[in-house]
Amino acid sequence: MGMPVELKGHVDKVWQISWSPTELLFVSCSGDKSIRVWKPSKPDLTEWVCTKTLDSAHSRTIRSLAWNPDGNILASCSFDSTTGIWEKEYELVATLEGHENEVKCVSWSASGTLLATCSRDKSVWIWEAMGDGDFECIGVLQEHTQDVKSVAWHPHEEILASASYDDTIRLWKDDDGDWFSFQTLTEHASTVWAIDFDKSGDYLASVSDDQSLIVWKRSSSGYEVHSKYPNLHQRTIYSVSWSKQNNLIATCGGDNSFCIIEFNPDAENGLTLKKRYESAHGDSDINCISWCPLGNNSDLLATAGDDHLIRVWKIQL
């Protein structure tokens, strides 16, 4: 079996995958209400196996997963309005309640002490990890006017970005215990589905139902548009992943394809499409794309589709 490797197991659309930051494995979540853990079973990575299935924690679709920076705590969030916390070989140690309805995304801060969740209830919640599965909500951020689709922390600082069905991205920080939105980015013309920082945090990538990719650059006054790639996909772009090893951005969406784009910060418009993979999940939407964060495996990319499948790709440009 060669690349891409096709992973079967889920029995409904796969919404997201999350690579471990410390070892070569990833977890996936699905409309089938389960989380699966996947590891390579051959040194050349041409075979992967599901080593665990967690299917008792959530009563509805599991939408998103996130590892803490140490790779020893996993958070899962679900349309059942809760967020699960998993420790010690995938034992559910806490269930965070508070959102009124679907929790759509979860993200850990760089220090691993803060967790952000967002929901169709238009709010973003910031939780502080107190240890031993104990979490305290320290902020309920309610500036978005519609569903909040995703959240992403800055790679070094306690700055949070959130993307919404209200077509905007908001940036948040803490002022003496009070979380506030210090900037609203309004360049997208429709729902912003996903965001990801580059490894420096000086740049932020966003993708939208408007079928475009935008890269924002940080300046003294906040984030500003640096580069735009209009009509990158022919339908909604659902996911974006910025490699933490290089300047490659991957996107995927409802047009069955995924794209590898190179970003050059010194160019006027720094986005160059290097390769487009058509029909990467056959006739299916691709919901998630994610670069492996490990330095030795930075050419590995995982995609998840409506076809219930996950694919692991080795990207050679």
Binding site: T61, F79, N101, E102, T191, T236, G254
Partner: peptide
């Protein structure tokens, strides 16, 4: 229109 064509909203509605 926005609601009807947002697959995540539709998936949640069907649950």
């Amino acid at each position: 229109n926005k609601q009807l064509n947002d697959k995540e909203r539709v998936a949640a509605a069907l649950e």
